[in-house]
Amino acid sequence: MFEAQMAQAALLKQIIESIRELITEATFEVSGTGMMLQAMDSSHVSLVALNLRSDGFQLFRADRPFSMGMNLNHMAKMLKCAGKDDTLTMRADEANDLVTFLFESPGNERLAEFELKLMDITSENLGIPDAEYSATVSMPSAEFQRIVKDLGSIGDTVEITVTKDDVRFAASGDIGNATIKCRQLLDTEKPEDRTLIEMVEPVNLTFALRYLINFSKATSLAPSVTIKLSTEMPVVVEYKLSDIGYVRFYLAPKIED
């Protein structure tokens, strides 16, 4: 038996909306520690890792580890039916291949029950090493989204360079070139407005912009985003979900042969 209750159905809806274009099918692994999902996109260039800790739920019960394979577009269809302030309860048991989503209005006057068919998904899990990164940049998530969208109109790839003074995003294409330079900014009223650059050694990496633009669909989930880079390693783009976990996106770099 698995049962979990979230104060805001809208949170899970937003999470699924932010990843469903990248991964259409995925298996949620449920255990006493929470709900986790790891999946590669169809081209096997990027990876999504979602972690929702059990202590971030209002109620969480998982008698034993349990896998729930879901089509995320179908899941999104159902979650869209939740009211803005509805609570969400998820229920599933191993006896039937269904997960139930219960949407309850704040005054308990409306209770909607949606049952989603579970599916068997063959996927391979990758072991992500706990690496030290050469550079870590935290910046407002809206700023990162603007940068990747703006550069996406100029070129297909972005070259990200981190030095101790700034982080540069550069793109070039048929119509010309663009460089956006962000300096460290610590003296802000709100902590989420800061741009923080932690550099062990300078890095310079090239990535396909369309994936980064896709990752930035998660912007509404967190006011700030953390970007971790090491030479010739996948970049990590992390959105922290307050009090419950994170969504991390990994993207393999483009490397000269």
């Binding site: 072991g127 996948p234 770099p253 483009k254 000269e256 042969d257």
Partner: peptide
Amino acid sequence: QPQQRGISSFFGRQ
């Protein structure tokens, strides 16, 4: 031109 790598070439299969 730099070539796109696959993600599994960096992270080991489990």
